[in-house]
């Protein structure tokens, strides 16, 4: 058999509306089933408990939608990306839909760590011009309090456009700041209607 690492198919998918409420694990399970339904020639790990060779991008918090989620699938033979895309789309539900497929290098970084910069779009229920971003936020992780310096994570500040705003957060190897947690701690006059991840980038220049 040809080395399956040679056929590393990256898929970009959206997660929207009520399916934004799925957890990372639920999305992962769902995508494995999408791949099986699509009938793609996925590679299976050898050993004690064989499983599909599939890897997922950085976790999206529950409640946050996205237009740019990723998963990488190792396949045992080449399938034209357009064909793979059509098969995946036919096996997906509309609100968790694959949008694009392409091959990546066997040596490419894993989708979960390759793109530390995430840009989010917030929709408010009324126009907003400015918000009060705190310097630090105290979160509880594993029953321990942790103080996060917002400046270390907020790679690009809020930009407003009517009832929408965008901002970029950087995930650090040591931890990250959730976009919904950041919004909760900002003094905002309007209510948050939705939060969507609209871009994942390797660095801020992209």
């Amino acid at each position: 058999m040809t080395d399956p690492r040679l056929f590393r198919l990256r898929s970009v998918f959206i997660e929207r509306d009520r399916l934004a409420m799925l957890s990372h694990l639920e999305v992962a399970h769902t995508l494995e089933r999408v791949v099986r339904r699509a009938g793609l020639p996925f590679a299976v790990s050898q050993g004690f408990s064989p499983h599909m060779k599939i890897a997922f991008g950085a976790a999206l918090p529950v409640g946050i939608g996205s237009t740019c989620e990723l998963f990488d699938l190792q396949m045992t033979r080449y399938i034209a990306p357009t064909k793979a895309l059509a098969a995946l789309q036919a096996a997906s539900v509309p609100d968790l839909m694959v949008q694009e497929c392409f091959y990546i290098e066997p040596s490419a970084k894993a989708a979960s760590v390759a793109f530390p910069f995430s840009t989010y779009e917030v929709r408010f229920d009324a126009p907003v011009v400015a918000i009060d971003v705190p310097e630090s936020i105290t979160v509880v992780r594993k029953r321990k309090e942790k103080v996060l310096e917002v400046g270390q994570f907020l790679a690009r500040p809020f930009e407003f456009d009517g009832d929408r705003a965008t901002f970029t957060l950087e995930a650090k190897p040591t931890g990250s700041l959730r976009p919904d947690v950041l919004l909760e701690h900002c003094g905002i006059d309007a209510g948050v209607v939705s939060v969507t991840r609209i871009a994942q980038a390797e660095n801020m220049q992209e």
Binding site: R18, M21, L22, V62, G63
Partner: peptide
């Protein structure tokens, strides 16, 4: 009544119990 229910679902334990749209 999804519009009214969805606000509660978002705060519920395991929202995916209530959201429908499964394959």
């Amino acid at each position: 009544i999804w519009l009214q229910v969805s606000a509660l679902v978002a705060k519920a334990e395991r929202p995916s119990r209530y959201i429908n749209h499964e394959w």
